[in-house]
């Protein structure tokens, strides 16, 4: 038993599959256990479509609420946004844009990684 830092990546766009919200549920689960693991939440590839400001977040609001209360932010990869013609103005307020090099740094500090 030990506290771990876990990198969660979200690689699929909502809503054709359930990964966007079940991944958040799993992240809440990881932070809520006895070990109180910490997480990073990173959106890559088509996953960045979840970070658009007008996306309906009804079914993930509960998980996002818990995570933001814990001080976590959603991090979207700049290169993935640019490749899809998404600008910073299109993003929700709780989204932070980071570079691919920053994502690699998050990979390096993580103990374990999980992809959704």
């Amino acid at each position: 038993m030990a506290q771990k830092h876990v990198l969660f990546t979200f690689n699929n766009a909502p809503y054709g599959s359930i990964w966007y919200t079940e991944g958040l549920r799993a992240a809440v689960g990881a932070t809520s256990g006895i070990d109180e693991h910490t997480v990073d939440l990173v959106y890559l590839g088509d996953g960045v479509y979840f970070t658009l400001k007008d996306v309906d977040r009804t079914d993930s609001a509960r998980y996002l609420g818990t995570l933001t209360k814990g001080g976590y932010r959603l991090k979207a990869e700049r290169e993935s946004l640019e490749a899809r013609g998404i600008s910073a103005a299109d993003l929700a307020e709780d989204v932070e844009v980071i570079s691919r090099a920053d994502v690699v740094e998050l990979v390096k500090i993580a103990d374990l990684t999980i992809d959704f």
Partner: peptide
Amino acid sequence: GLPDFAEIIGE
């Protein structure tokens, strides 16, 4: 449940 998964992460 997910607490079990959190435990697996720990181990």
